[in-house]
Computed example of a mutant assay.
Amino acid sequence: MAKTDQTLRALHDEGLLLLANVTDAGSARLVEARGAKAVATSSAALAWSWGYRDGNQLPLKLLSASVEAMARVLTVPLSVDIEGGFSDDPDKVATVVEAVLTAGAVGINLEDGHASPEILCRKIEAARRVAEAKGVDLFINARTDVYLKGLVAPEQQLAETLTRAGFYSSAGADGLFAAGMVDADDIGELCRSTPLSVNLLYRPDLPEIEALCELGVRRLSAGSAIAEFLYGANAALAADFMITGRLSTQHLDALTYKGLNELMPPV
């Protein structure tokens, strides 16, 4: 683990790290076999794989089981999206962090969502304490949902993101995941204004990879987009087979995040 934690940290200094977020151990191994330098989970895809909705609902024992299964088949670093840590209590978040580190993760995503940034700061500090106690140089990627969830008015989003980046950096984060940010000017200003490694979430209207590199982006995540397409393909293939007894790949479309999430029964 000591080797892979340093590897993950170094990857953020070597250009744009592309993360094709995975669902389970099989997809993790597949992505590594296709040349991934690191593997990262999608919290939504992982929750759906167990029949749970995204949004801090997956039981910790199942999260830990997934991480352990992935770590068993990987030789590259593994980063795990633990959403908001499944609690607003930093001590409970610390328990989650300890569990995923024990299972083999060397990076985590922690998000603010609709909670105040001060709460995420306390979670980051708790995660850092746990990692230091375990001797892991944990890469903490702080996700802010200012853009993704429209936490403030559009004209205030960049300023609010910069403010939160300062908070999260001071708390001990290593990366800033500005999910939902797509404007090149905003991206450039964020990259220039924070020492954190800037992470973006795939969107069709993002600038091309070359432009992102020039702007200073260090990490691009697919999020749940790959899983949405794969589940859509699964549904179409299964439905067609149950009608015709044949497999047809002619009409495959992604399912939506909302549709997949609502398909899972509520806790």
Results as ranks from 00 to 15, higher is better:
196 L>K: 02
137 D>E: 12
203 R>E: 01
158 L>Q: 13
182 V>A: 15
200 L>P: 01
192 R>Y: 01
175 G>H: 06
159 A>C: 05
178 A>V: 11
196 L>W: 00
205 D>V: 08
195 P>I: 07
185 D>M: 05
138 L>P: 11
137 D>W: 07
140 I>S: 13
168 Y>T: 11
142 A>S: 04
190 L>R: 02
192 R>G: 04
200 L>D: 00
148 L>T: 08
159 A>M: 06
202 Y>C: 09
172 G>M: 14
197 S>E: 03
166 G>P: 10
155 E>R: 13
201 L>P: 04
153 A>Y: 04
173 A>S: 14
196 L>T: 01
162 L>R: 08
200 L>I: 03
141 N>Q: 06
148 L>W: 06
138 L>T: 10
141 N>A: 12
202 Y>T: 05
189 E>V: 03
200 L>V: 01
183 D>I: 02
192 R>P: 09
140 I>T: 12
171 A>R: 14
146 V>E: 08
178 A>G: 11
162 L>Q: 06
142 A>R: 00
172 G>V: 14
155 E>I: 10
183 D>T: 03
184 A>K: 03
194 T>N: 07
139 F>N: 10
151 L>R: 12
205 D>G: 05
163 T>K: 15
168 Y>I: 12
167 F>I: 10
189 E>L: 14
160 E>N: 11
196 L>S: 08
174 D>I: 11
192 R>W: 01
155 E>D: 14
159 A>W: 03
188 G>R: 07
158 L>N: 11
184 A>C: 07
180 G>P: 10
157 Q>L: 06
145 D>K: 02
186 D>G: 13
165 A>N: 05
151 L>P: 05
167 F>S: 13
